[in-house]
Design a protein around this nucleic acid. Structure first.
Length: 496
RNA sequence: GCCCCCAUCGUCUAGUGGCCCAGGACGAAGCCCUCUCAAGGCUUAAACCGGGAUUCGAAUUCCCGUGGGGGCACCA
């Protein structure tokens, strides 16, 4: 037997806790997760909180909750631990200092005493002269003795990477191939800040190495500093991971990168790019994931997938590098499609919170009965209110106008309701099988059309013009309530 | 300003030199079904950014434009 062996991949999702978990982050996490699971490896979560001033309280928890809601369970992370912890960068200071020392000793990095004010002035001057903004190298020229003396003096300083000033760097991205950049385009970037914490450039490289990450899956906004990162990894003499820079998401219009502002706009139409909001809006993890997965991934076949199926079909070779405009209509489609795939019990459980949050008293047996009736009518879970809230209400108060059938007047409509009432009253129970035949017969003999007769009954019993199928609905509402509601409708019609 | 990346229907994508007068999905239009609304079935319209080059042959390779995106911090 022939065994195709794939090395298990270790991947990570490494967000900074500076805001809401959004669609772009979720998709990055998804691909990293899929790659790990596909190859039998591990997926881990690391919090990149080295910019203390930007850290938002609660953001970290939102990341945990969001990933769990989506079903992207990580094997290692800040809240569950793991063999390579800690998984929060602010708790890893000593590790970074150890590696900074290595770089300084090997001549790949140097201390810099320039003040932010001076740097600002230099940058402004360079812009005025239309030169590329870059560090001017003042401290790079300092002798080791001089630097040591100033450090001993307690002078505040950062540590910069000593970038080669000539030649080129060739960095290999899995989706784009070799990317070549002249070294002089690269800056002597700050690796360690005055506050003793590392910048992303150092922290991410160190952690990915320490944590055994085999594939770095991240957004294409990192493409610009990608060659720098490759240089840092090489300065340490480490083996490079496989780099996978994902495409970015564009606004629905295709003009510009998706931003927070777009979520505000989207919210007006019942959408959001924040994972937390999507749940409130009635989207399902399955729908959101399926939608996000398809933007940037050319699935071989079968567009509709749950997480498990995505794992089966996933391959980083079929990821696409070009930017993708998001399309909320497609979200609707995938959400509705997955809703239709849920079992009745599952869907009932998912729907219940949407009824109860509106203050409705949900009877579980009734809920189970209405699910098959409304399932294919739902786009979002909260649509269940529009189609099924009346099942849990004591009274319905139809708009009198709506009770009048098309082409008829109030009096005629009242007569029809009266006749329908008699027919239904003759039935010992109200069921689909018992009620439809006699009412159809009435439609026949009266010369009316089904729309007219059924329409009056629909509005009378459900209180709305659009509802799940009439007879099935009446059956669930029950004989007593149906008759009472029709009687009420007759009264309303007679008063017109 | 400089650098990097990307480029197939409106949108997401398939396509790795002949299988492509370009396939799928969403959306759109029409028809069927039908007690409303959906769902479902069938059908239609809709694209290789432009120009050169290589080749018997190019959506597919190369070059130049153009358009779009991203980056140029003691932010990630």
């Amino acid at each position: 037997m022939f065994i195709l062996s794939v090395k298990p991949a270790r991947t990570r999702f490494a967000p900074s806790p500076t805001g809401h978990l959004h669609l772009g982050g979720a998709r990055t996490a998804l691909y990293a997760y899929l790659l790990a699971k596909k190859t039998g490896g591990q997926f881990l979560l690391r919090i990149e909180d080295t910019d203390v001033s930007r850290t938002v309280p609660g953001a970290e928890q939102e990341i945990f909750d969001g990933l769990r809601w989506l079903g992207l369970n990580y094997d290692e992370g800040p809240d569950i631990g793991g063999p390579y912890g800690p998984y929060r960068q602010t708790e890893r200071r000593e590790i970074y200092h150890k590696y900074i020392d290595i770089l300084v000793k090997s001549g790949h990095a140097y201390p810099c005493f320039c003040t932010p004010e001076r740097l600002d002035a230099v940058r402004q001057e360079q812009q005025k002269l239309k030169v590329n903004p870059h560090y001017d190298g003042t401290c790079r020229a300092l002798s080791q003795d001089e630097a040591a003396r100033r450090i001993a003096n307690g002078e505040k300083h950062v540590v910069r990477f000593k970038m080669a000033q000539e030649g080129v760097t060739v960095a290999h991205d899995h989706l784009r191939g070799d990317i070549t950049l002249e070294n002089k385009q690269l800056n002597d970037q700050v690796l360690l800040k005055t506050d003793g914490l590392p910048t992303y450039h150092l922290a991410a490289m160190v952690d990915d190495h320490e944590m055994g990450i085999t594939h770095v899956v991240r957004g294409s906004e990192w493409l610009g500093t990608f060659p720098l990162h490759v240089n840092i990894v090489r300065a340490f003499g480490w083996e490079e991971p496989t780099w996978v820079h994902l495409s970015v998401f564009l606004k629905p219009s295709g003009k510009g990168k998706l931003s927070k502002r777009d979520s505000v706009d989207a919210n007006k139409d019942g959408y959001s790019v924040f994972i937390k909001d999507m749940q409130d809006l009635g989207f399902t993890p399955e729908g959101v994931l399926n939608w996000g997965a398809l933007m940037g991934w050319g699935v071989p076949e079968g567009d509709v997938m749950n997480l498990e199926q995505m794992v089966e079909r996933f391959s980083i070779d079929s990821l696409t590098p070009s930017p993708a405009a998001i399309n909320f209509q497609k979200l609707d489609h995938f959400n509705a499609t997955h809703i239709r795939l849920f079992t009745t019990e599952d869907l009932a459980a998912r729907l219940k919170p949407y009824f109860t949050r509106e203050g409705l008293n949900v009877n579980d047996d009734t809920l189970l009965k209405i699910v098959p009736l409304i399932r294919e009518r739902l786009v979002t879970l909260d649509d269940c209110l529009a189609f099924g809230a009346f099942f849990f209400k004591e009274d319905v108060n139809p708009n009198p106008e709506d009770l009048i059938a098309k082409g008829l007047d109030a009096k005629q409509s009242a007569q029809i309701a009266q006749r329908a009432y008699q027919i239904l009253e003759e039935q010992p129970t109200i069921s689909h099988e018992r009620c439809e035949p006699p009412l159809r017969a009435y439609v026949e003999e009266s010369g009316l059309n089904a729309n007219q007769v059924f329409g009056i009954l629909r509005v009378a019993t459900t209180g709305q013009k659009v509802s799940p199928p009439l007879f099935e609905s009446m059956e669930i509402i029950g004989r007593e309530k149906c008759l009472a509601r029709i009687k009420n409708a007759i009264e309303v019609l007679e008063k017109i």
